[in-house]
Structures are given as structure tokens and as C-alpha cells.
């Protein structure tokens, strides 16, 4: 029983947490791709930048000596998201919009976004150095333990308070995004533009406004994902650059341009990763006594060592592209 709880803590909780972060990042990438038709490589760094914006705000708030029942990082998150959305708009206006106005091809915009990646990382290192920081230098990270009322279970289900809040906030964000895309005039306009940009234009949809809203949403969600990732682990300049690959994989697996696909893809990637690095030998140990003697359980039965967990995203991506190049959720509509 304890081994099952260990499995739950490691794979299920870990998967939901990782999946939430991937999903929020992948939604931004897929929205930008749907509207602007280019792979926004700098998205991971927009996440990191959002994390740093939140960190600065949290430090300022802590400096004022204010205390809250929730971690400060979560309190300042809405403000950080607004600032990050503004920065995202500025990045578009400064770098991508001029290229679009000249009719640049998607690959040009992709290269430009690699430039933006380097710029953001450089600026972060310039102002904050290369060290690793934590939101929890000044306040404790609360650990939540839930005892399992089953005989023989001594190990509790455990997760941290940031992890719980992270999952709840992701849920809220996903529901809010759903209502925005299906109920609001601008959200529907976004879907129309992703569906058929020429017809959207012919219908008189203000495509520039749609582009702005896309950056606001993508920038805001990126900040949310980056901050929550930093709250869960720690903040460093290459925080989200390291996970930009699984995030892209999540967006592609879900079918580029499909917001719901990106969310599902994010969770799929998150669970796949935690399952691949989980040591399955743990679950077999209880049966050790019943197994024939020649069958010895190896000490490690993980599919992938955790240093190589990025390969999981690669493998899933390659398989999906081979079997179903449009992504797993695109089949129904087009």
C-alpha cells in the first residue's frame, strides 16, 4: 500500500503539476501559431521572464512587510501577468509586427523569435545574474499531508501548497479560456482568424485587435506558468528554456492551433514524463516473495533516467508525427 501511495505522489501528483505547466505554455504557443502562423520559440523565455517579474513584485511586497495567508508569489501573480502581457505586446510591436508588415515568411519570424529568446535570457542574466533563486527564502513552503485511511498505509499522500494552488489556478485559467473562446465576441473572432484568416478579414474582423488579444493571453498564461514553475522548483535564467521542447511537443501533439488539444497534450506529456522516469521496481517489490528465485527485481526499473527525461517528449513527438501528423485531436473537424 505504501508503494502505491508512493506511486501516486510521484506519478499522479507530479504528472498533474508538470502537465499544468506544460498545458499553460502550450496553449500560448498554439494560440500564437493559430493566429500568426509561426512557431514562437521565445515562449519558454517569456515564461521565465514572467517568473522574474513575479519574483521582483514578490520581493517588493515582502520588503513592505506585508504578510498573506497564501505564498506571496501567488498574491502578486495577477499583477505580474498584467505586466508580462504588456511586455509580450511590446515584444510583438518591436520585433514581430514590423516583420509581418513587410510580409515576412513564418520561418523569418521563427528566427526572430530565437533572437528574442537570446535577448530575454541575456537581459535576465544581466539584471539577476545566473544564480538560482527561490520564492521561499523568506517564507516557508507548506507541505500538505493527507493520511490514507487504509490499513497498512503509513505513508501519507503529500504535496506542497504551491502545487495545490498551481493545479487549481490552471483549472481556473482553462475554464476561463474556454468561456472566452466560446462565448465572447473577441474569443470567437480569434477562433475565426485561426480557422480562416482571409475570411476573417473579409468579415471585417479587426485582425490587429485579435493579434493584440492573442499576445495578451499568451503572455499572461506564460507568466502564470513560469511563476508557478518557479514556485514549485526554483527560479533561474534558463528555467523554462529547458522545457520549451516538451511544451512544443504538447502543442504539436494536440494539433497546432487547437487550444484544447494543447491542454490535453500538456497533461499527456506531463504524465508521460513522470511515468517514464518512475522506478517501476517499487511497485513490484511487494510481490518479491511470491516470485520465483531466478527472477530478481532490478533495483531500478525506470524507462528513462531522469537526466534524459527530455527524450520522452521527443519520442512522443516523433511517434505522433509519424502516425497522426495533424495531432491527435484534429481528426474530427477538419
Amino acid at each position: 500500500m505504501n508503494d502505491l501511495i508512493f506511486f501516486f505522489n510521484q506519478v499522479m501528483i507530479g504528472g498533474v503539476v508538470l502537465g499544468s505547466i506544460y498545458a499553460l505554455g502550450a496553449v500560448g504557443i498554439t494560440l500564437i501559431f493559430g493566429i500568426l502562423r509561426f512557431a514562437h520559440f521565445a515562449h519558454g523565455d517569456m515564461m521565465t521572464m514572467g517568473g522574474f517579474v513575479a519574483f521582483v513584485l514578490a520581493t517588493l511586497v515582502a520588503g513592505m512587510g506585508l504578510a498573506f495567508p497564501l505564498p506571496t508569489g501567488f498574491i502578486v501573480l495577477p499583477f505580474a501577468m498584467v505586466i508580462a502581457a504588456g511586455i509580450a505586446l511590446g515584444i510583438d510591436k518591436g520585433f514581430y509586427a514590423p516583420l509581418r508588415a513587410r510580409g515576412a515568411r513564418p520561418v523569418t519570424l521563427l528566427i526572430a523569435s530565437i533572437g528574442v529568446t537570446m535577448m530575454i535570457q541575456g537581459l535576465i542574466r544581466l539584471f539577476f545574474g545566473t544564480s538560482t533563486r527561490s520564492f521561499f527564502d523568506t517564507e516557508p513552503k507548506t507541505l500538505i499531508r493527507i493520511d490514507v485511511p487504509i490499513e497498512g498505509a503509513t505513508r501519507p499522500i503529500s504535496f506542497t501548497e504551491p502545487q495545490l494552488l498551481l493545479v487549481i489556478l490552471t483549472l481556473i485559467a482553462v475554464v476561463a479560456l474556454h468561456f472566452f473562446l466560446t462565448r465572447s465576441r473577441l474569443g470567437k473572432g480569434m477562433r475565426a482568424m485561426a480557422d480562416n484568416p482571409d475570411l476573417a478579414k473579409v468579415s471585417g474582423i479587426n485582425t490587429k485587435q485579435v493579434v493584440r488579444v492573442t499576445w495578451i493571453i499568451a503572455g499572461g498564461l506564460a507568466c502564470m506558468a513560469g511563476t508557478m514553475l518557479a514556485l514549485d522548483v526554483s527560479l533561474k535564467p534558463d528555467l523554462a528554456f529547458n522545457i520549451v521542447l516538451p511544451i512544443f511537443a504538447a502543442a504539436i501533439v494536440g494539433g497546432l492551433g487547437h487550444a484544447y488539444g494543447a491542454i490535453a497534450g500538456g497533461f499527456l506529456l506531463g504524465f508521460a514524463e513522470t511515468m517514464a522516469v518512475f522506478n517501476w521496481a517499487v511497485l513490484l517489490r511487494p510481490f518479491r516473495d511470491n516470485l520465483p528465485e531466478w527472477l530478481e527485481i532490478p533495483s531500478s526499473l525506470a524507462l528513462v533516467q531522469s537526466e534524459y527525461k527530455l527524450t520522452v517528449a521527443f519520442i512522443i513527438l516523433v511517434v505522433v508525427l509519424l502516425v497522426r501528423p495533424t495531432g491527435i485531436f484534429k481528426g474530427a473537424s477538419t
Partner: peptide, 29 residues
């Protein structure tokens, strides 16, 4: 469009991933 012109292209003239109702709403954007 706000001035009173409306155009129906020959091809790709509906939003395929949106409902009929949403298509009409987009016409009134």
C-alpha cells in the same frame, strides 16, 4: 464592412471549425 459592403469568396467561405450560428455571428462582428 461597416460601410455596407459584403463579400462572399468563391472558396473557403465558411469557418469550418465553428458552428453555423457562430459563422453568422462572425458576419456581424
Amino acid at each position: 464592412v461597416p460601410m455596407g459592403l459584403s463579400f462572399i469568396p468563391q472558396e473557403h467561405n465558411v469557418f469550418t471549425s465553428m458552428t453555423v450560428h457562430e459563422n453568422l455571428e462572425m458576419g456581424a462582428f
